[in-house]
Write a protein that binds this DNA or RNA. Structure first.
Lengths: 145, 145
DNA sequence: ACTTGCCCTAGAGTATTGTCGAGGGTTTAT
DNA sequence: ATAAACCCTCGACAATACTCTAGGGCAAGT
């Protein structure tokens, strides 16, 4: 079974443009061409493309994905390098997730404030403090309609 | 207490360029200027800037942060809009986190494979299958040194 | 007065990740 | 054999988020 670029676009949700862009960026060196120069995707290619999408969707840069694919193309001798690249990436994801969850807690704090029955009063008070601070420092008041 | 742009840059880790960029983008309408046209940050401004960083670090686009700040500038009447914006963002974060964790599982699967004692053999076999697939479809073999 | 180290704006430049149009060849069905 | 629907490359354009340069003003110490 083989697939045209359009078939792959339909299967993956990536646009044809994006697939060609990825190829241009060196992410698809494993995709063969037919006599007319058309890209021909095999099932194995789809599997690798899926891996590429996993890496992309977890935030890996195209340059790093290219490196990973280059290792894959070089065969089994590059297993240690692949391992290193992926585990570094894995840790980066986890670190970033943790950071996001921390920041999310502050967003939640704000949300909670806005949901208080006396939210209006709280926000008004906060605004008054900010304006007083400006006045105390002889600054113009930027909170004006 | 007030702070120069440099002091704020040092405190937040944002570059002076970035702070000026944020101002240009309408994220800092609350920052006053002194007689010489210099930006003067108050403690309240730093607090709001911190909120901006939270939103940015959780992936919110500058355009949306600008909207949030605009609501804040408009005073307590915009609490419902702020609530809607933040809770939409909150859900977007959670959805994305979930998607990333799913994709991470596939990365983990690969990592686990590379850590097997017979990883070399497994990868070699996979490569052989991919090459056979190309041959079976009369395609050139892209896996060559 | 002068040097140093800040501050400002406007606008150009950069990096990343696409997205699209022009111009042209291929395949398939009628 | 011709239209419709594909495919190709190349290169321009776009959105996002900075980053930096040029040109010039201000403030403090010597």
């Amino acid at each position: 079974m083989t697939y045209s670029i359009k078939a792959v676009a339909d299967k993956t949700g990536l646009s044809i443009y994006t697939l060609r862009f990825y190829d241009k960026q060196g992410l698809l060196p494993f995709v063969s061409r037919n006599a007319a120069g058309y890209r021909v995707f095999t099932d194995g290619d789809l599997h690798l493309l899926h891996t590429i999408c996993c890496l992309k969707d977890t935030g890996m840069k195209i340059a790093d994905i290219r490196q990973y694919i280059a290792y894959v193309m070089q065969g089994p001798t590059t297993i240690p390098q692949r391992q290193h690249l992926l585990s570094t990436h894995r840790q980066a994801i986890l670190d970033q997730q943790a950071k996001i969850m921390q920041n999310l807690q502050e967003v939640d704090f704000k949300l909670n404030l806005y949901r208080q029955p006396n939210a209006q009063a709280l926000v008004t008070a906060e605004l008054a403090v900010a304006q007083a601070e400006k006045r105390a420092n002889g600054l113009p008041n930027p909170f004006e309609k």
